[in-house]
């Protein structure tokens, strides 16, 4: 079936189908950025594996960070169906030619940040990603179904960490509130620039990659999160946040996107550290990957 007909009938584009180069390029960029976000996202939470305050929390956190590595694998595999390979995508990440979500350039300063990432960052990711389960490109849509299932599990775990802290000692409560204060605005920025300043959105919508606008998704996240914050007994750091009966939505304060653009540009608290960590791990592992390749080649030569 022709590409346009597939899109018109809300069908799925599969790897062997013909597709415009620009569609392919957009998907590669988006899926790669998504995969990179999963693996860079291992670092801020991995930062607390060694210090998790109970063995149960340590086990949950290790499993969560492991899930992120797994998401990275599904997503790189989905990108590879478009004719690129993982090693090349990683090279583009390491050299700054491809991006990852800016949220991971913020530091995890306290244990409560692990909870805030689960609740707010994974919560925002879910709102962004659930519509991607209906994305026009089949392999991406299918990868997202698996990712979303695990993300909603992570979001509940993050909520539970914060709930325990918010109902614990005064120091624990303060730790939870401080984490929410620091992560709230960056989480809202995860939905991207406002609709009137988002040049690529219209094309992605026409291609069935994107289903809702940035501002629609952001509003959905705010509406979903406000009652959860009340259940936690924590405050969202926005004096303008209130229910608007007329709109049937929460109003919220203006987002300072200048900070987002600074962080995207590389001037966030952890940009340099995140990439340096990733590059070091990759370089330190080169001899291992070379050994595995040499060993496999010897076996193949022996079998021939």
């Amino acid at each position: 079936m022709r590409f346009e007909d597939l899109l018109a009938g809300d069908g799925r584009v599969e790897p062997r189908d013909e597709m415009p180069d620009a569609y392919r390029r957009t998907l590669v960029r988006q899926i790669a950025q998504h995969a990179h976000s999963e693996i860079i996202g291992m670092q801020p939470e991995g930062n607390w594996i060694s210090r998790a305050p109970s063995l149960r929390r340590k086990a949950i956190l290790m499993a969560k960070v492991q899930d992120e590595a797994g998401h990275g694998l599904y997503l790189y595999a989905a990108a590879e169906t478009l004719g690129v390979d993982r090693a090349d995508l990683l090279d583009q990440l390491h050299t700054g030619r491809q991006k990852y979500s800016s949220i991971f350039n913020y530091p995890t300063l306290t244990w409560a940040d692990v909870g805030a990432i689960g609740w707010l960052v994974d919560g925002a990711a879910i709102v962004n990603q659930v519509p991607l389960c209906r994305c026009s490109y089949g392999p991406y849509a299918r990868a997202m179904v698996r990712v979303c299932k695990e993300e909603s599990f992570h979001q509940r775990q993050g909520f539970e960490i914060l709930h325990t802290l918010a109902h614990g000692s005064p120091a624990q409560h303060a730790m939870a509130q401080d984490a929410v204060d620091r992560y709230w605005w960056p989480a809202l920025m995860m939905f991207g620039p406002p609709d009137d300043d988002s040049p690529n959105s219209a094309q992605s919508m026409a291609w069935g990659i994107k289903r809702f606008s940035n501002d629609e998704l952001r509003q959905r996240f705010v509406d979903m999160t406000v009652p959860q914050a009340e259940a936690l007994g924590l405050t969202l750091p926005d004096p303008d946040l209130r229910w608007n009966d007329e709109r049937g939505h929460h109003d919220f304060g203006e987002i300072d996107f200048t900070e987002l653009y600074e962080v995207v540009r590389g001037n966030g608290p952890c940009n340099a550290d995140r990439i340096a960590h990733k590059v070091r791990a990759h370089e330190d592992g080169a001899w291992v990957r070379e050994a595995a390749a040499a060993y496999a080649a010897k076996r193949e030569a022996g079998a021939a």
């Binding site: 991995g46 594996i49 060694s50 340590k58 290790m62 960070v65 590595a69 791990a281 291992v288 990957r289």
Partner: peptide, 17 residues
């Protein structure tokens, strides 16, 4: 646990975790 995010390849991050 130290290896998670530092392994030689992504499959190994999973395995060591």
């Amino acid at each position: 646990g130290w290896w998670i995010s530092r392994a030689p390849e992504l499959e190994e991050d999973l395995a060591l975790a």
